[in-house]
Design a protein around this nucleic acid. Structure first.
Lengths: 195, 195
DNA sequence: CATAACATGTAATGAGTTACATGATTAA
DNA sequence: TTAATCATGTAACTCATTACATGTTATG
């Protein structure tokens, strides 16, 4: 589970409130580990409970900003976690399930949905490329910058990977080739069989 | 949520029991949507409750195989779901969080962990390549085979993507370059500040 | 018939999501 | 001073994971 450690990392950079963190997540590591503000507030409360962070001693009523800073134990826990041995999480890609299902009971209108998503991923890719041009112009970066740049490049590659997959899927879906002998013959007739 | 529809897809191919499905998941679409046997049994019960599948009328006691077949409503639901408009799920990659964290508080022993995972992903890639050679020799496949082959190729590309990311990460981590000026100097002292 | 392996299932926990509630700040 | 927005938080629910429980079949 990475969320608490993603928060600790963000707090290493500077003390922040829940809404600060939510906003920064949207811009940076959030592309690799999304979190809603509810998750963030809950996790911050837990981290404080565990003594890894501390809320700055300003007024702490509901509705007012409440900044947290990381404590030495939090830093230590973060370093411990980074190198932990864990099995990589399994990929969960619903597009693959859809393609698999389409192979079994298609054809469907899956191509429309893929085109829609293709647009989303293309936009995300463009955003990343802008970040790249803006923040990582030269080469020979210091270690920490090189790591952050690598994370961004992985984002770029992941979007490219997705775009290629979707493009090839569309080629197959639109080729209007036959399935095996019969099987889906009736479906090709385009009868509006109700919904 | 794709699990029920992954199960429906598997049941289109042939009626199966929970343990059959668990075994087949391990070999095929499971690489893109993993499920434990508990999830599968629960989901099968729900699907039967919803009238989308039906358990074959054999004895139905605990401990004995219990096969399900898909019903026409199940097929219909599957076709409906395939083309549904849904936003793509967010990527959740803990390696990226670790790299980001390493940039903030490193260096750590993250390189060891990455090497360990690299081996896992390399093995998975080899497995996929074997499937490819075994099942998709020629070209010009019929539509359904082409789709299944695409899913496998995406698996291959995903593993390659991961391997490249890990390799580049190792290059940076092992280069032993300086971070920005000072910053992590105190952390190098290794004082056990008492958990 | 005892034991291992298989097949199905229950229970508890925790992460993630959605809907909503409440206090504070800002702007018309 | 009211309305809009921001910031924090609660509650309910679902999915996923882990540990465990129970019954059946196959093997010696």
């Amino acid at each position: 589970m990475s969320l608490p450690h993603a928060l600790l990392t963000a707090l290493v950079e500077r003390p922040s409130s829940g809404s600060d963190l939510a906003a920064r997540f949207d811009k940076t590591i959030g592309y690799f580990w999304r979190a809603t503000h509810q998750q963030i507030y809950r996790e911050l409360a837990r981290l404080e409970e565990a003594g890894l962070i501390q809320s700055l001693p300003e007024e702490t009523t509901r509705g007012r900003k409440r900044a947290y800073k990381i404590l030495p134990t939090g830093r230590k826990e973060l370093k411990r976690w980074i190198a932990l041995n864990e099995d990589p999480p399994f990929l969960r890609d619903d597009l693959m399930v859809r393609l698999w299902a389409e192979a079994a009971v298609g054809p469907t209108k899956l191509d429309k949905e893929i085109e829609r998503r293709l647009k989303l991923h293309t936009e995300r890719l463009e955003t990343y490329r802008k970040y790249e041009a803006r923040d990582y112009g030269g080469d020979d970066h210091p270690r920490d910058v090189a790591l952050r740049y690598l994370v961004l490049r992985c984002g770029i590659r992941y979007e490219s990977y997705w775009i290629q997959a979707a493009t090839e899927a569309l080629e197959i879906l639109k080729a209007d080739k036959p399935c095996k002998p019969d099987k889906g013959a009736t479906a090709a007739k385009k009868r509006p069989t109700g919904k």
